[in-house]
């Protein structure tokens, strides 16, 4: 496991509630391609690089596997930000997966932002297996951005009253 022991989502939520907003620690879900970023994260661990424990790494076979619905689901289930990482264009293990992902996620990101999502909350980066430093820097950067934004309000608990 390339990730440090992380607090559970509910512990993070409880911590947020208990202390001031400055103490907010975001939960970030990172979909990492098995063939590149996942190894890059592993390498970061081997090299004892430290990066925020806010990120939860979820291994996927390819960035092309990341159904945009995953992103919405992650936000609805309590994540404050979502990061999708895959191989650099041209390097896809399956030849074209990341090319499809690039188009799809580019359009999807614009659609989410159109409906008011802060751009920082959903990001896509290409990180190869040797780019441990880039993985660390990306996680730090995204984490700082989302910490500054504060928690994501999905509206899960606001049941819609049709009348009222």
């Amino acid at each position: 496991m390339p990730v440090n022991e992380a607090p559970t989502a509910s512990a993070a939520t409880a911590a947020t509630a208990a202390t001031a907003a400055t103490a907010f620690e975001p939960t970030i879900l990172a979909f990492c391609c098995h063939w590149c970023t996942y190894s890059g994260a592993d390498l970061a661990g081997l090299n004892r690089m430290s990066y925020p424990a806010n990120v939860r790494v979820l291994r996927v076979p390819c960035s092309g596997r990341v159904n945009p619905q995953f992103v919405l689901t992650a936000l609805n289930k309590g994540c404050d930000g979502v990061l999708v990482c895959g191989c650099h264009p041209g390097d896809c293990h399956y030849v074209s997966g990341n090319y499809f992902a690039r188009r799809r996620l580019m359009a999807f990101k614009r659609l989410l932002e159109f409906t008011g999502l802060e751009p920082e909350r959903f990001q896509v980066r290409w990180i190869s297996g040797s780019e441990a430093g880039k993985f660390r820097d990306t996680v730090i950067e995204v984490c700082d951005q989302i910490r500054a934004l504060g928690p994501y309000r999905s509206g899960v608990s606001d049941d819609v009253s049709l009348n009222g």
Binding site: P68, Q69, L72, T73, N76, A107, F108, L111, L112, T115, S154, G155, V156, S157, D158, D159, V160, L162
Partner: peptide
């Protein structure tokens, strides 16, 4: 199946994305 903002947003955005192109 619950009607709340999060589920309604999920439905509407996914619908658009599925037919958008």
């Amino acid at each position: 199946k619950q009607n709340n903002l999060a589920e309604n947003r999920f439905y509407n955005i996914t619908r658009v994305f599925h037919i958008g192109d």
